[in-house]
Design a protein around this nucleic acid. Structure first.
Length: 110
DNA sequence: ATCCTGACTTGAC
DNA sequence: GGTCAAGCCAGGA
């Protein structure tokens, strides 16, 4: 059994992401203090289907703004459609104006 | 126990 | 300024 505490933390942060915004794995990892373990964040996302309530994993992308995990969704286009539905423009598997759409988990403290 | 892989990031060339 | 390599932790073979 993995440390679900870490997984749950990732899920909670992911759920804090406001609609129309996106964040990066590293940002979440840094927020949790596990900076350097950015891969684990993505790994935790892989198990997001095991989480309750479900996690908006489509709002989590890599630091380049690319939908790296779109292939892990039910359909490769699901992630892109969900983002576009929320007002996030996605082109060629990348978030348009990612820097503007970027949301830092630390913002909740503010 | 070792080796490989993976929804990443950063630093070096 | 793009490309390569290494570091990172967990899990499966």
């Amino acid at each position: 059994m993995p440390d679900y505490n870490f997984y749950d933390s990732v899920y909670q942060v992911a759920r804090l992401i406001p609609p129309g915004r996106v964040t990066s794995y590293g940002a979440i990892a840094a927020y949790l203090g596990t900076k350097g373990s950015s891969r684990m964040v993505g790994y935790a996302m892989q198990a997001c289907g095991n989480a309750n309530p479900p996690v908006p994993a489509h709002r989590v992308v890599n630091r380049n703004g690319m939908l790296s995990g779109r292939h892990h969704f039910e359909t490769p286009t699901r992630m892109q459609e969900l983002l576009q539905k929320e007002g996030v423009k996605v082109k060629d598997g990348k978030v348009v104006e990612f820097e503007k759409r970027f949301w830092d988990p630390a913002s909740v403290l503010f």
